[in-house]
Design a protein around this nucleic acid. Structure first.
Length: 263
DNA sequence: ATGGCAAGCTAAGCTTGA
């Protein structure tokens, strides 16, 4: 069973690219981020026609997440409020950044973590506070589901080997100690990075800046991840980054990451 | 040190992304 994650940077702009990719990679589940469209305007039928059930949580212009699944999912929830309650979540569900569903015995949480703009900015504070809330949400999910897969665009470079030049980017958002620590706190709840089960060397990235020929020069960042609970980590057979769609015409700046589970 | 490219919204330029 394959579970893929892909920040598509607008599903309407990337519709054909996602269809082409799915034709060659008919994954069981595809988690999308930055769909950038309200649910009413999501291009559902092209994907339903090729055999997927769609679950979307979108907003106008920004953010937005969706899950495509070959089979119907159970217990689909959007945002944090359904799990943590309105008092704890406050305004944090206004931006559509989380959607979850269950397939077989596996709980899948699809996330679009805030970018954070620049270290010290208001958006950076929002990112850290959002991650704190995510920690509570994940703690709750782990209590309910032993088989947990949390994937998406984390907008955090976990370690220096996950970026082309850590020293040159030391002050960039995504590398700050507070962001890495926030991710580490979540990981320590009982999760592991699936990609690192199979690959230890650096030089593997999932995002390249459109600007300054980032992809051509392989100036990339690995910020799209799958975090697995212990039982699922043991079941992981492979986790690969598919760079090919990043070479296509009018690509997303991210490329898909595919997890394969034994089952 | 800075900008560079792309998308959405909306009708030329701003905001966001990481």
């Amino acid at each position: 069973m394959k579970i893929a994650t892909w920040n598509v940077n607008s599903i309407r702009t990337r519709q054909q690219i996602v269809l082409d990719w799915l034709e060659a990679n008919p994954v069981e589940v595809l988690c999308l981020q930055e769909t950038k469209v309200v649910d009413d305007k999501f291009p559902r039928s092209p994907f339903e026609e090729v055999g997927y059930h769609l679950y979307t949580s979108g907003q106008k212009s920004y953010n937005g997440v969706a899950i495509f699944s070959r089979r119907p999912m159970k217990d689909v929830t959007s945002g944090f409020t359904e799990v943590l309650g309105g008092d704890a979540v406050g305004e944090f569900d206004e931006q559509k950044r989380a959607i979850a569903g269950t397939i077989d015995d596996i709980r899948i949480i699809n996330l679009y973590v805030p970018n954070g703009a620049s270290v010290g900015s208001d958006k950076y504070d929002y990112k850290l506070n959002w991650l704190k809330l995510l920690q509570e949400y994940v703690k709750n999910a782990l209590e309910k589901s032993p088989n947990l897969c949390i994937c998406g665009d984390f907008n955090i470079v976990p370690e220096d080997r996950d970026i082309h030049d850590a020293e040159a980017c030391r002050n960039s958002v995504g590398l700050s100690p507070a962001e890495r620590q926030a991710l580490e706190e979540i990981r320590k709840l009982g999760l592991a990075d699936a990609f690192r089960k199979f690959t230890s060397e650096g030089g593997h990235y999932s995002w390249w800046d459109y600007r300054a020929a980032g992809f051509k020069r392989n100036r990339g960042w690995r910020i799209d991840h799958h975090y697995l609970s212990k039982p699922l980590y043991d079941r992981a057979k492979s986790c690969i980054i598919d760079k090919e769609p990043r070479t296509w015409v009018k690509p997303s700046d991210h490329t898909p990451v595919i997890l394969e589970l034994d089952c």
